[in-house]
Lab assay of single mutants.
Amino acid sequence: MSIQHFRVALIPFFAAFCLPVFAHPETLVKVKDAEDQLGARVGYIELDLNSGKILESFRPEERFPMMSTFKVLLCGAVLSRVDAGQEQLGRRIHYSQNDLVEYSPVTEKHLTDGMTVRELCSAAITMSDNTAANLLLTTIGGPKELTAFLHNMGDHVTRLDRWEPELNEAIPNDERDTTMPAAMATTLRKLLTGELLTLASRQQLIDWMEADKVAGPLLRSALPAGWFIADKSGAGERGSRGIIAALGPDGKPSRIVVIYTTGSQATMDERNRQIAEIGASLIKHW
Rank of each mutant, 00 (worst) to 15 (best):
L188C: 08
R92D: 06
Q88V: 14
L219W: 04
W163R: 09
S233P: 05
S68V: 02
P217M: 13
R81D: 05
E119F: 01
N130D: 05
C121K: 00
E277Q: 12
E277N: 13
R273K: 12
W208V: 00
E169K: 12
A148K: 15
P181H: 02
L219Y: 04
L247E: 04
M153C: 11
A148S: 12
L223M: 14
T193I: 13
A84L: 12
G194S: 14
A246P: 02
R159W: 06
K144E: 12
L218E: 01
K71L: 01
E35K: 00
A211L: 14
T131S: 14
E270M: 09
N130F: 01
M66G: 05
V29H: 14
L74S: 03
K232A: 02
M153P: 01
R81I: 07
M184R: 01
P172H: 10
S128W: 03
E61D: 14
P181G: 03
G43N: 02
R176V: 06
P105S: 05
E108V: 14
H151I: 14
D161K: 02
Q37I: 14
M180S: 15
S68C: 04
P249W: 03
W286R: 03
S68H: 01
L38P: 07
A222S: 11
K284V: 10
G236K: 03
H110R: 13
G85Q: 12
I283H: 05
K71M: 01
W286L: 04
P65R: 00
Q265C: 13
I206S: 10
T116Q: 09
A84H: 14
I93E: 04
P217C: 08
G263K: 06
M67S: 11
A123C: 07
T139C: 11
L160N: 06
D99V: 09
H24T: 12
G226C: 08
S201T: 08
W286G: 02
L55F: 10
V214I: 07
N272K: 03
L111G: 07
D207T: 13
G251D: 12
I243G: 01
L74I: 08
A266Y: 12
K284R: 13
Q86C: 13
H156D: 13
V82H: 09
K71S: 00
P25C: 10
D250C: 15
K53Y: 11
Q203P: 01
A84Y: 10
A222R: 12
F64H: 02
D36Y: 11
A185C: 07
D36M: 15
D99Q: 10
I54R: 08
F70S: 09
I45L: 15
A132P: 03
A225Q: 12
L196A: 13
E46F: 08
A124M: 06
K53P: 05
R241L: 04
R202E: 08
T147L: 06
L89W: 07
V214A: 08
L188P: 01
P181E: 03
A133I: 02
W286Q: 04
H156M: 13
R241D: 03
C121D: 01
R118N: 15
F58S: 11
L167Q: 04
D155S: 00
Q97N: 12
A246Q: 07
Q97D: 15
I171K: 15
G248Y: 04
D174E: 08
K144T: 13
R202D: 01
L146K: 03
D36Q: 15
I244H: 01
A235P: 06
G234V: 03
V42N: 01
R238Y: 15
G141A: 06
D83K: 05
T158V: 04
E61P: 01
E102L: 13
K232N: 02
R91C: 05
Q86R: 15
M153Y: 08
D36A: 14
M153E: 07
L160G: 04
E237T: 12
G43F: 00
F70V: 13
Y95W: 14
R92I: 14
L160I: 15
G76F: 05
L160D: 02
A280G: 13
L136P: 00
H110P: 04
D177A: 03
T138M: 15
W227K: 00
Q37M: 15
E26W: 09
D231C: 05
S128Y: 00
T69L: 03
E237K: 15
S281I: 15
M127F: 10
P172L: 12
L74E: 02
L49T: 08
E164V: 01
G251Q: 11
V157I: 14
G239D: 00
R41A: 09
P181K: 01
R41M: 10
R91L: 06
A230N: 00
R91Y: 05
I229R: 01
A235V: 07
W163L: 09
R238H: 15
N134Y: 03
M180H: 13
W227H: 02
E102N: 13
T131I: 02
A84F: 10
W163Q: 09
T126A: 10
C121M: 08
I283P: 02
R92M: 14
M180G: 11
H94E: 11
L146H: 01
K71H: 02
K284N: 11
L136N: 01
I256G: 03
L196S: 13
S57F: 10
L188K: 03
G90S: 13
R63I: 08
E87H: 05
N134L: 00
G43K: 00
I229P: 01
I256H: 01
G194C: 10
L38T: 09
P249I: 06
L74N: 02
I275E: 02
E164W: 00
I244S: 04
K232Q: 00
E277T: 10
E26A: 13
E87R: 04
L223R: 05
I243M: 07
H151E: 14
L49H: 06
W227I: 03
G248V: 00
A215C: 04
T139G: 11
S51V: 07
Q88C: 10
F149I: 12
I125W: 00
S254P: 08
M115Y: 03
G85N: 11
A211N: 11
M268W: 10
G39K: 13
S201W: 03
P143G: 06
C121T: 02
T198N: 12
T178H: 01
V72F: 03
M184L: 07
F64S: 00
P143I: 05
Y44I: 07
A246K: 01
T27K: 07
D155K: 01
T179N: 04
T187H: 05
S80G: 14
S264G: 12
K109F: 10
T126K: 07
F70I: 07
A280S: 15
I45Y: 14
E195C: 09
L89T: 06
D33A: 13
Q97P: 14
Y103F: 09
H156L: 13
V82K: 06
A183Q: 15
A266R: 14
Y95R: 00
M184Q: 03
W208T: 02
A182W: 12
K284P: 03
T267F: 08
A211E: 15
G142T: 05
T267V: 11
A124C: 08
L47H: 02
C121G: 05
V31F: 00
L167K: 00
M209C: 06
R241P: 05
E270V: 11
G142Q: 04
V117I: 15
A215G: 08
L47G: 02
M67Y: 01
A276N: 08
L49Y: 11
G39Q: 14
Q265L: 14
L160K: 03
R59S: 06
S128D: 02
K53Q: 15
D129Q: 00
L55M: 13
P165Y: 05
G234I: 02
S240Y: 03
D212W: 03
M184P: 00
A132M: 01
N98D: 15
G39I: 08
R159T: 10
L146Q: 04
D48Q: 07
R63E: 06
A148E: 12
C75T: 08
K109P: 08
A77N: 10
R176G: 06
R41V: 09
A40G: 15
L150D: 02
E26Q: 12
F70E: 01
E166D: 13
P60R: 14
G142C: 04
L205M: 11
R241C: 06
S68W: 00
G216E: 07
I45W: 00
M180L: 09
L197S: 06
A133K: 03
C75R: 00
N152G: 12
A170D: 07
A132C: 01
A246R: 03
D113F: 09
V42Q: 02
L89H: 07
E210N: 09
V257W: 02
L47P: 01
R59T: 02
L49P: 05
V78M: 09
L111H: 12
K30V: 13
K30R: 15
A246S: 10
T186E: 15
H151Y: 13
A77P: 04
Q203W: 09
M127K: 09
Q37N: 13
W208K: 01
L219A: 03
V117S: 03
W227D: 00
P181N: 00
